[in-house]
Design a protein around this nucleic acid. Structure first.
Length: 430
RNA sequence: GGAACGAUGGCAGAGUGGCCAAAUGCAUCCGCCUUGAAAGCGGAAGCCUCGCAAGGGGCCGGGGGUUCAAAUCCCUCUCGUUCCGCCA
């Protein structure tokens, strides 16, 4: 959520920042929020004044009773009762305004970082680094899509995955399954120096899914377990962000750095029929997420660190990659600034988004109510959150199959994964 | 799933209708004392919100109700503990 107080004190600044996203509807909502807020404050002040009078009168009743003045007590009670009526109706109005304002605010996007590049959409995202590890040309035997190679090698069995769960569910087997797990193990090990490993729940409450910004707007994208009021997480960002929800952290505890390997579940409601082959878009996949809850002053440097860490893992796997920055028109709802790492897959002849690293400023932390206290100072401030995919299995897995394919159809296991592959150095052609 | 009991400040723990933002202890911070520290003594200190300020309002797990007045009474939900049941 954006800060209502900022909307109050610097409406033009907020307006200008949000305008960069190029969504006129946003500005309409912003005006709506400003109006609701102004009205809310009026009503609340009035209600508080009524309450003050009721409080005073109630005290007077008690004192009069004690003094044995039944008449004065009765008189105060009568006045107070009348005031109580109007107080109740003001309170009802105030509650309504409050929830209306909250609903509007929950749907207003975060403000882009001043340095985020302007742009209308995906096509305007600038490449900020790379391509790296990109050969001048790819031999013919690498121009085979991973689903063909992997199915032939017996390490991908989507026919059976689909039989079990339906379209867009995949099934890896043998060395394919081992490699999926090896990728996660690699990512965890590479970040264990600075990130505490967490094994969070993957089914979460509505409040938890709201904190990251996935609800209420994107309910259709999440799997819901309606009977129990739970949601399947689309990313470990969701439970990890809420790890300290509702808590006030000591400044010295920041940055809090955590990571988790979890399954991620996505309905992909808007993309039915797209990327249905292979591993490019699936309802369930494994991912290692790294996340930081940071002091605002630490956030910019933390963003760089997260990008470097995510990049490092892709680099050590020897894959061709580049880094793009997300422009204002393509920035997700909660995002303040984002970078994507893309890997080139020669078989599909596509750049695949394999990692997204983002800074959310205080947007998520305000929803989750994660605060910190400066040492020796009174009061609290909202923390900042940042996170990145240290490794998302399917597309990296796919890119390895395509980039490491040999002329005989086998796939060489990247050096970095071998310690986790029970000695396998190659996935042999049968 | 059934039953009982519970949820109060950083922690522990009083408080059963008004004088309660809330005793007390521990922890914290600031003084004094001390070469320094401990002990001792004195003092400070919750969070949110409106306001330039003075000051006001709210918060005792969440929500609702009774009352002039609710931490305190009633309803409800959530969570916790214990016992039973089930179970990897």
């Amino acid at each position: 959520m954006i800060d209502v107080r900022l909307l109050r004190t610097d409406p033009d600044g907020v307006r200008l920042a949000l305008a960069r996203r190029g969504q006129p509807e946003l500005l309409v909502q912003l005006d709506k929020a400003a109006h609701l807020d102004a009205r809310l404050r009026e009503i609340t002040a009035e209600r508080d004044e009524h309450r003050r009078q009721v409080n005073d009168l109630s005290k007077a009743v008690g004192l009069a009773r004690k003094a044995g003045d039944a008449q004065a007590a009765e008189a105060a009670m009568v006045t107070s009762r009348e005031l109580g009526e109007s107080e109740r109706s003001l309170a009802a109005e105030s509650d309504e305004l409050q929830s209306a304002l909250h609903d509007v605010l929950l749907r207003i996007t975060n403000m882009p970082h001043p340095d985020a590049p302007d742009g209308a959409g995906e096509q305007d995202n600038p490449v900020v680094k790379g391509p790296i590890n990109m050969p001048a040309s790819f031999p013919e035997h690498q121009r085979v899509p991973h689903w063909e190679t992997a199915t032939a090698l017996g390490i991908l069995d989507n026919e059976r995955g689909t039989k079990i769960s339906g379209a867009m569910f995949t099934l890896q087997r043998g060395l394919g399954a081992t490699m999926a797990r090896a990728l996660c193990q690699l990512a965890l090990d590479r970040n264990a120096d600075a990130f505490e490993e967490i094994r969070p729940p993957t089914l979460v409450s509505t409040a938890t899914l709201t904190a990251t910004g996935h609800l209420p707007k994107f309910a259709d994208d999440a799997f819901a377990i309606e009977r129990d009021g739970l949601w399947a997480i689309p990313t470990a960002e969701v439970p990890l962000t809420s790890l300290y929800a509702g808590e006030i952290l000591d400044e010295t505890a920041l940055p809090a750095q955590v990571m988790a390997h979890t399954s991620c579940f996505r309905r992909e409601a808007g993309s039915a029929g797209r990327d249905t082959r292979g591993m490019l878009r699936t309802h369930e996949f494994d991912k290692v997420e790294i996340l930081a809850i940071a002091h605002p002053d630490q956030a910019a440097a933390m963003l760089d660190e997260l990008v470097a860490r995510c990049e490092g893992t892709i680099a050590v796997l020897g894959l061709p990659y580049r880094i793009i920055e997300i422009c204002t028109g393509d920035l997700g709802q909660s995002h303040h600034r984002s970078f994507d790492i893309e890997v080139y897959a020669p078989g599909c002849d596509r750049w695949l988004e394999v990692s997204s690293v983002s800074w959310f400023s205080d947007y998520q932390a305000r929803r989750a109510d994660i605060r910190f206290r400066r040492t020796g100072q009174k009061g609290t401030e909202i923390a900042h959150t940042l996170n990145g995919s240290a490794l998302a299995v399917p597309r990296v897995w796919a890119a390895i199959i395509e980039n490491y394919r040999q002329a005989d159809g086998s796939v060489v296991v990247p050096e970095a994964l071998r310690p986790y592959m029970r000695g396998a150095t190659v996935i042999p052609a049968t």
